[in-house]
């Protein structure tokens, strides 16, 4: 059968694609999956930092595509999971160095040996986005509960539809429960109502995310993080498990749940 190629994209930048790729990679590896992460954001390399592998880079994606090294030489093994690898993006090279065909050929070579290949897409709708989605079997669209992010996600979905890629699934990232309850932020329903695609996960805004990205330890390794739990749930859903949606995917805190029951909420 071979690996499933999953591209994580968004349209708008800064919504959490890289965070999602890193965390789903770790969560899938913890579930025993063999995983390769590919950073396709050429010129804006940062998946390696979030994965804590920056200092191990010798070769990158462009080196592989241009034949300067073997694929294996560019694959950096994760410190904790021997079957989790990263192919980093190039730091400062010409964005046209990689083509959609290159991406298809690369993933075809990796497919037999892995279960999942996750591709971190750059923002926008240009060449880099085309490269990232070209080999995909599934596309996950990350958005934030903000009108402008949803608008860009909608555009991307339209492009994917025109290319017969899809149906894409949606990750709503940085949801703030208290604001949504007050009706001050778009809810998951508001967002899926417009985008009309399946929701695969809701990731709450979580103060643990930024420090863990800075330290190169994806937040899903932190058992107390609500965002981390949401990513673990998405990983299981990607594997085909039917994981029920938690209320806002946030309440692993039993005390809070009891408090809500008592208050009749």
């Amino acid at each position: 059968m071979g690996a499933k190629v999953v591209t994580i994209t968004s349209g708008k930048g800064g919504v959490g694609k890289t965070t999602t790729v890193a965390n789903l990679g770790v969560a899938l590896a913890r579930l025993g999956q063999r995983v390769v992460l590919i950073d396709a954001d050429i010129g804006l390399r940062n998946l390696d930092i979030v994965m804590g592998l920056e200092n191990r880079i010798v070769y990158d994606l462009v080196d592989v595509v241009e034949g300067r090294c073997k694929i294996r030489q560019a694959m950096i093994k994760h410190k904790l999971f021997p079957e989790l690898y990263l192919i980093p993006s190039a730091q400062t090279r010409d964005k046209t160095a990689v083509s959609p065909t290159d991406m298809i050929q690369l993933t075809d070579k990796l497919r037999p040996e892995f279960d999942f290949i996750l591709i971190d897409s750059p923002a926008g709708i240009e060449r880099g986005f085309r490269n990232a989605v070209a080999p995909s079997d599934e596309v996950l669209i990350v958005t934030n509960p903000e009108v402008s992010a949803v608008r860009d996600a909608d555009r991307i979905i339209g492009l994917l539809e025109a290319d017969n890629k899809g149906p894409a699934q949606l990750i709503l990232n940085r949801a703030k429960i208290d604001l949504i309850r007050k009706g001050e932020m778009l809810s998951a329903e508001d967002v899926t109502d417009i985008l009309a695609i399946r929701l695969i996960g809701i990731v709450p805004e979580d103060e643990h995310v930024i420090p863990s990205s800075n330290n190169g330890v994806p937040v899903t390794l932190n058992e107390n993080s609500r965002a981390g739990m949401a990513f673990r749930n998405i990983a299981r859903r990607l594997m085909g498990e039917n994981v029920p949606f938690m209320p806002m995917e946030d309440d692993n805190n039993i005390l809070r749940r009891i408090a809500r029951l008592l208050s009749g909420g």
Binding site: V147, R151, D154, G158, I194
Partner: peptide
């Protein structure tokens, strides 16, 4: 016969019928 998503423009010298949604944008 599909949803018109953000970024698309449809022009007609006559009428327009959309069997689907017309999204913001």
């Amino acid at each position: 016969r599909r949803t018109l998503r953000s970024g698309r423009t449809l022009r007609s010298q006559g009428h327009v019928v959309v069997y689907g949604d017309v999204n913001p944008g």
